[in-house]
């Protein structure tokens, strides 16, 4: 068994804070424009469809489908080199947006496009007082 991925610590701006705080609570948090209704990701301070600043956050289902993936055998970066082979993937969320992520909790060779997955959160030790976590996905 390879080592677990040591995910680099995410950092938030005021625009992206809702997403990472949500992850810290074990939730996938997305944005919806109150003006035109568009659900958007990555988070922004404005709606990228109508430029309204009237944005709300909501808790998404955390369920999605593997859009595409790759089993990474070589990544020289610390935290990943030790974890190869690991699965990097795009997951399309039920609410529409697509997120880059890792598929964990299964043999990399069993991951396929179209696989149903659900969010799984890696909490991290941080010394900056933030309670963020990194969303990954695992087979349903």
């Amino acid at each position: 068994m390879m080592a677990e991925i040591q995910h680099p610590l995410p950092n938030a701006s005021w625009e992206t804070r809702g997403y990472w705080e949500g992850a810290g609570r074990g939730e996938i948090v997305l944005q919806r424009c109150r003006s035109c209704g568009t659900v958007q990701h990555k988070p922004r301070g404005v709606c990228a469809t109508c430029l309204s600043g009237d944005i709300e956050h909501f808790v998404a289902s955390g369920r999605g489908t593997v859009y595409t993936f790759t089993v990474t055998n070589q990544n020289m970066a610390k935290g990943f080199a030790e974890a190869c082979p690991y699965v990097m993937a795009y997951v399309t969320l039920e609410e529409g947006p697509r997120v880059l992520t890792n598929i964990v909790g299964c043999d990399p060779d069993t991951v396929i496009i179209g696989m149903k997955v659900t969010a799984d959160f890696a909490t991290q030790e941080r010394d900056d007082g933030e309670a963020f976590a990194v969303p990954r996905f695992t087979p349903v």
């Binding site: 995910h7 690991y86 990097m88």
Partner: peptide, 14 residues
Amino acid sequence: AGPAESFISPYGMT
């Protein structure tokens, strides 16, 4: 490590 890159860098993108 910035806020924008934080949607990529945790996942081992190469």
